[in-house]
Measured scan of single mutants.
Amino acid sequence: MQIFVKTLTGKTITSEVEPSDTIENVKAKIQDKEGIPPDQQRLIFAGKQLEDGRTLSDYNIQKESTLHLVLR
């Protein structure tokens, strides 16, 4: 499924993921596309910071959901 990751600069990254993918996994995909190390990434969805060990389905993230990427 496709999800969108919006950066603070307003850029939107499209990523191909599975509901069973972990947040860590998603951060790795963002690193592949943007070159941002996962340890600098914080992903936010519905006002919550997403934890690395959890999966997209844990957070009820569905296709075409938009996550927000904040850098630390």
Rank of each mutant, 00 (worst) to 15 (best):
R72M: 13
L50C: 02
A46F: 10
F4T: 06
I44L: 12
Q41W: 11
Q41R: 02
V5W: 03
K33H: 10
I61K: 02
T12S: 06
F45D: 00
Q62Y: 09
V5M: 04
V26E: 01
V26A: 02
N25A: 13
L69F: 03
T55C: 04
V70Q: 09
G53H: 14
I3G: 01
T22D: 02
D39F: 11
T66N: 04
T7R: 08
V5F: 09
T12K: 08
T9K: 11
Q40A: 10
I44C: 13
I23G: 01
L50S: 01
L71C: 07
I36G: 04
E34W: 15
S20W: 14
T12N: 05
N25Q: 14
S65E: 07
R42Y: 13
K33T: 12
L71F: 09
S57M: 12
E34N: 10
L71W: 09
L71I: 12
L8E: 14
D39Q: 11
T22N: 04
K33L: 14
K48S: 08
K48C: 08
Q40R: 12
E34Y: 14
Q49F: 14
E16A: 09
V5C: 03
A46P: 00
T12M: 12
K29Y: 10
E34S: 14
V17A: 06
S57H: 10
V5K: 00
E51L: 10
P19F: 07
S20I: 06
V17Y: 06
L67R: 00
V17E: 00
D32P: 03
R72I: 14
I61W: 01
R42M: 15
Q40E: 10
T22F: 08
T14S: 10
D21Y: 08
L71Y: 09
I44G: 02
E51N: 07
T22E: 02
S20C: 08
K63Y: 07
S57Y: 10
K6V: 14
P37Y: 05
Q41F: 15
G10W: 04
A46S: 09
P38S: 15
T7K: 04
T9E: 11
G35C: 05
G10H: 05
I13C: 04
R42K: 11
N25M: 15
V26M: 05
F4D: 02
R42H: 12
S20M: 10
L50N: 00
Y59I: 02
R54D: 04
L71T: 09
D32I: 13
I23C: 02
I36D: 03
S20T: 12
S57K: 12
G47D: 05
Y59P: 00
K48F: 10
L50F: 02
Q2E: 09
I44Q: 06
K29S: 07
G53K: 12
L71V: 12
G10T: 02
K29V: 07
I44K: 04
G35M: 05
K33Q: 13
D52W: 04
Q31E: 09
K6G: 03
T12D: 03
Q2V: 15
L43V: 03
P37E: 07
V17L: 05
F4R: 06
D52N: 10
S57Q: 13
Q40S: 09
A28K: 15
G53P: 06
S65C: 04
R42E: 12
H68Q: 11
M1Y: 14
L50D: 00
I44M: 13
L8C: 15
Q31V: 06
L8R: 12
K6A: 07
I30V: 06
F45S: 02
E64M: 11
Q31H: 14
P19S: 09
N25I: 14
M1I: 11
T55F: 06
G35Q: 05
F4L: 06
F4G: 02
G10A: 04
T14E: 08
K6F: 07
Q2R: 15
V70W: 09
Q62S: 10
S65K: 04
Q62A: 09
L50R: 00
N25S: 15
E24M: 13
A46I: 06
F4I: 07
I13M: 07
K63R: 12
R54L: 11
D52V: 05
E16W: 15
Y59C: 01
K33E: 09
L43S: 00
P37C: 06
I13G: 01
E64G: 15
L8D: 11
K27N: 01
Q41M: 15
L50V: 03
D39A: 12
R54I: 06
N25H: 11
L43I: 07
Q62G: 13
H68F: 14
E64W: 14
L50W: 01
L50H: 01
V5P: 00
K11T: 08
I61V: 09
Q49M: 13
D58Q: 07
F45M: 04
E64S: 11
T55I: 06
S15P: 09
N60V: 03
Q62F: 10
Q31Y: 15
I23T: 04
G35E: 04
T55K: 10
V26C: 02
V5I: 15
I13T: 03
D32K: 13
R54N: 09
F45G: 01
I13E: 02
K6R: 11
T12G: 03
P37D: 08
T7W: 14
E51Q: 10
Q31T: 09
P19Y: 07
T66W: 08
Q49E: 15
G47M: 04
Q2L: 14
P37W: 06
T14N: 06
K27W: 04
K33S: 14
R72P: 10
K6E: 07
R42V: 15
I61F: 02
N60A: 08
I3M: 02
S65F: 09
T7I: 13
K27F: 07
I61H: 01
I30Y: 02
L56S: 00
P19L: 10
Y59L: 05
V26Y: 01
N25L: 12
I61Y: 00
V70I: 13
L43R: 00
P38F: 14
I23H: 00
Q2G: 06
R42A: 10
I44D: 03
Q41N: 03
Q41D: 02
K11E: 08
D58N: 05
D21T: 10
P38M: 15
F4N: 05
T12I: 15
R72T: 12
V70D: 05
T55M: 10
L43E: 01
L8V: 13
Q49P: 11
T7A: 05
Q2F: 13
I44H: 09
Q41C: 08
T7L: 15
T14W: 08
T55P: 05
E18G: 08
G35S: 05
I30C: 01
D58M: 05
I30W: 02
L67S: 00
Q62D: 09
G35F: 04
Y59D: 01
E16C: 14
I36S: 04
G10I: 02
K11C: 09
V26D: 00
Q40C: 12
L67N: 00
T14I: 14
L50I: 03
R54A: 08
L67D: 00
I36W: 14
E51K: 09
V26W: 01
S15T: 15
H68N: 08
D52F: 04
T66E: 06
G47Q: 04
S20Q: 10
V17P: 01
D52L: 05
V17I: 05
L8K: 10
E51T: 06
A46V: 06
Q2A: 08
I3S: 01
E51W: 07
K6P: 01
T55N: 04
R72V: 14
I30M: 03
I13Q: 03
T22R: 07
M1H: 04
K11G: 07
I13S: 03
L56A: 02
K63I: 06
T9F: 13
L69V: 05
K48N: 09
T12P: 02
Y59W: 01
L8Y: 13
K29I: 12
V5L: 07
L8M: 13
T7E: 03
T14P: 06
K6N: 05
G47L: 03
